[in-house]
Structure formats: C-alpha cells, structure tokens
C-alpha cells in the first residue's frame, strides 16, 4: 500500500516532466551525450597511450561503464538531494514534514530526475559493449556480478549522495562540499584506482567506498588480481558494501532531520 503511494508520486513526476516534451527529450539526449562524452575522453586518451594505470582500453571502458551506469541510476533517484538547500530555504521541506510519509522517500520520489534515463541507457549500451569486448570467464557467478555491480554501485552512490547532502542541515553553504564528494566520487570511479595517489585513493576508495562501485567488481569479472595487492574477495562484496552504505546513509539522514526539527540540539 505504502509502496503504491511512492509509485504514484513517481508517475506524477513523469507526467509533470513530460509537459515540456521537447525540452525533456533534449535533456535526455544531453544526458546521453554527457555519458558518451566521458567515453570519448577515455578513447581520446587511449588513442595516445596503450595502458592507463596498468589497464587496457577495454578494461578501463568496462570500469567506466559500470560506474557511469551506476551513477546515472543514482543521479535519477537521489540527484534531487542537490536541491535540499532550496527545499530548506523555501520551506518546501516543512511541507514534506507535514505529510504522513518519510522525508527521504518523499524527496526521492517526488522529484525523480527522469531525464537521467538518457544517461542510464547510454551507460548500459557501453556496458554491454565492454562486457563483449573483454575476455570474461562467464559463469553463474560472473553473470550475477555483471548484473549486481551497477545496482550495488547505484546504491553506494545514492548513499553517498544522501550522506553528503545531509550536511546542508547543519551548514547552509554545505552544497559545494557535498558536490565534491558526490560528483568527485563519480569522476574517481570511472578510472582504475591505480592511477591515483595514496591520499585520493584512501579517501575516494575507502572512506567513500568508491572502489567498490566499479574497480573491484571489474577485477573480479576480468579474473585479474588487484595490482595493489587487495584480496580477490573484494571483487564480490560490493552488494554487502552497498547495504552497509545504505544503512549508514539512513542513520545520517535520520540524525540530520532530528537536528533540523530541533531534537537534542
């Protein structure tokens, strides 16, 4: 019953966004171009080099495709959390609190960024291509991983989005810092983590669990050992990391909303 409410909210968004049809279609196209532009950049680089951080073009494209698809899904579901400062400033957040539903679910459902579909579709196309171009030992395990990796990645990205933006409940100008973490982790995860220096890697791979979005799952799919010496198991635990990240994000959001309402401050 409760789920159907959210479905209805999503459906309403669909109708609302479609009311400017040309603009909506253009935005979808722009999102797809955005996604493919990132691919183009990788191809341009590999036009001049044969390996990046010890990985071939097909391997890097695989990582990028998983990360790009995951980010596209997360951006669609959680991207409107970027609007949180506006919600707070204009009092729209208060309106959400006046309804008999959870605030996070309402924010996500009531302003779904459907135009991101363009990005997701482009990401999936590239992913299919990358999977076919790499030498993958297909088994039940790798098939499951190929499906689960973008989904877990999306959950991880969404959790990052929620956690980072919750800062805005405390710091009014926290938006830019939140963006550094959300969009920064997207930029980070599209390439093998071997290209980054130790500090960037520590932060974006493990504090923010970015390495579990694309890097480790790709290693497992490719059957390659981690050049950085991590155990092979890391490639298979992304779904668990995703669940953990979601739990943390949920707790952070709850604390943040309690702070906003003035409990215990």
């Amino acid at each position: 019953m409760a789920e159907s409410v959210y479905l209805k909210l999503v459906g309403a968004r669909l109708r609302g966004q479609m009311s400017y049809r040309t603009s909506f279609l253009l935005q979808c196209v722009a999102q797809a171009i955005n996604q493919l532009a990132e691919l183009a950049i990788i191809l341009v680089l590999f036009n001049r080099v044969s390996a990046l951080g010890g990985f071939s073009v097909a391997e890097v494209v695989l990582m990028y495709a998983i990360a790009g698809t995951a980010f596209g899904i997360a951006d669609m579901v959680a991207g409107q959390l970027d609007e949180l400062p506006t919600y707070i400033r204009t009092g729209t957040f208060d309106v959400l609190l006046l309804r008999p539903l959870g605030t996070l679910a309402q924010m996500m459902a009531s302003d779904l960024h459907l135009r991101k579909v363009g990005r997701i579709v482009a990401g999936l196309v590239v992913l299919a291509y990358a999977l076919s171009r790499n030498d993958i030992a297909w088994s039940a395990g790798t098939v499951a991983l190929a499906v689960l990796a973008p989904v877990s990645g999306a959950v991880i990205f969404s959790s990052i989005w929620v956690t980072a933006n919750a800062v805005c409940f405390w710091v009014v100008d926290g938006q830019e810092l939140a963006n550094t973490v959300t969009y920064g982790s997207n930029a980070f995860t599209s390439y093998p983590i071997t290209v980054y220096g130790p500090w960037l890697r520590r932060f974006f791979a493990f504090v923010v669990p970015g390495a579990f979005v694309a890097y480790y799952p790709s290693l497992a799919l490719l059957g390659r050992p981690d050049p950085l010496g991590g155990p092979a198991l890391l490639g298979w635990i992304s779904p668990l990391v995703a669940v953990a990240a979601a739990v943390v994000a949920g707790l952070v959001w709850r604390t943040a909303v309690r702070h906003y309402r003035g409990t215990g401050s």
Partner: peptide
C-alpha cells in the same frame, strides 16, 4: 523551458 538546450550546451 530551455533546460534541454542548456544541458546540451554544457555537454
């Protein structure tokens, strides 16, 4: 609504 054009431009 020129958001579509905007997005295209940025890309």
């Amino acid at each position: 609504d020129n958001r579509g054009v905007q997005a295209l431009y940025t890309a």
